[in-house]
């Protein structure tokens, strides 16, 4: 089966040669299959954000290969990277990152406008994703008029509206209360199942992680352990994660 993400021998060293250097990632290897919901967990400073930045072309690895949707993203130039992000990737950030001078509708439509999609096709796309995420009633609101949970769902809609190959989230539930967090994760799971969208989620939080199919544990820049959900229920999986975190931390 083809892979959406394939990471091979990726290494990231911060700091120039001759200066003080720091190895944030060493020999990272893993892959994500279409429709998979993968979580990445690890202590603070373990290299999660670094990894995600490399996967999303915001940063380049010092060595190694990253293929996304069949394309080697480490060989792209700046413009190609921008196009790649605009077409193939969806982002959900911890702090929503909505543009506060655009309405919810306009925020969601932004990636389509960026790709210069035919104007006629924009509205149906926005409406359909908004309906899926239960945002239809608040489309004309400005971000400041929305709750945190609503904002994050708008951000999710923006990440999904252009049907990316994969959605990346860096702690998307980090700023939400547990109820909103759960609503968001339910929605992401639903979209993951129904539309077969691949999702890669970085999180600290075992509860958020329990929604994933598979979790990669990262420690000091290396992937140490992998935990699959298989046929476990979410509650069982949650317990497994807690256990792993306990042993993994040692």
């Amino acid at each position: 089966m083809e892979k959406i993400v394939e990471v091979q021998n990726v290494e990231k060293i911060y700091g120039k040669a001759g200066e003080k250097q720091f190895k944030a990632l060493s020999d990272v290897n893993f892959e994500v299959k279409p429709g998979e919901f993968v979580g990445i967990m690890g202590a603070s400073g373990s290299g999660k954000t670094t990894l995600l930045n490399i996967l999303s072309t915001l940063d380049t690895p010092t060595s190694g290969q990253v293929e996304i949707a069949g394309q080697d993203i480490t060989k792209l130039n700046n413009n190609q990277m921008a196009d790649f992000r605009a077409n193939k990737i969806g982002f959900i950030f911890q702090d929503f990152n909505l543009l506060e001078n655009l309405t919810a509708y306009e925020n969601i439509a932004l990636p389509l406008a960026l790709q210069n999609k035919p104007v006629k096709s924009i509205k149906p796309s926005v409406m359909s994703i908004a309906e899926k995420l239960g945002l239809t009633d608040i489309l004309n609101h400005y971000p400041t008029e929305l709750s945190g949970g609503q904002k994050q769902r708008v951000a999710a809609a923006r990440a999904l509206v252009h049907q990316p190959s994969i959605v990346f989230g860096d702690e998307p539930t980090g700023a939400l209360d547990s109820k909103s967090a759960r609503a968001l994760l339910d929605t992401l799971t639903k979209i993951n199942r129904e539309d077969n969208v691949s999702i890669l989620l970085v999180t600290h939080d075992p509860f958020s992680a329990s929604f994933c199919d598979r979790i990669l544990f990262i420690k000091d820049g290396e992937i140490g352990q992998e935990l699959k959900k298989e046929d476990a229920t979410r509650a069982e999986y949650y317990q497994e994660i807690l256990d792993s975190l306990g042993t993994f931390a040692e």
Partner: peptide, 16 residues
């Protein structure tokens, strides 16, 4: 700064 950074992240070209 934040706005432009976000636009950059979601794939806006520097030129744009």
């Amino acid at each position: 700064v934040k706005r432009y950074n976000m636009l950059y992240k979601i794939g806006t070209k520097q030129k744009m």
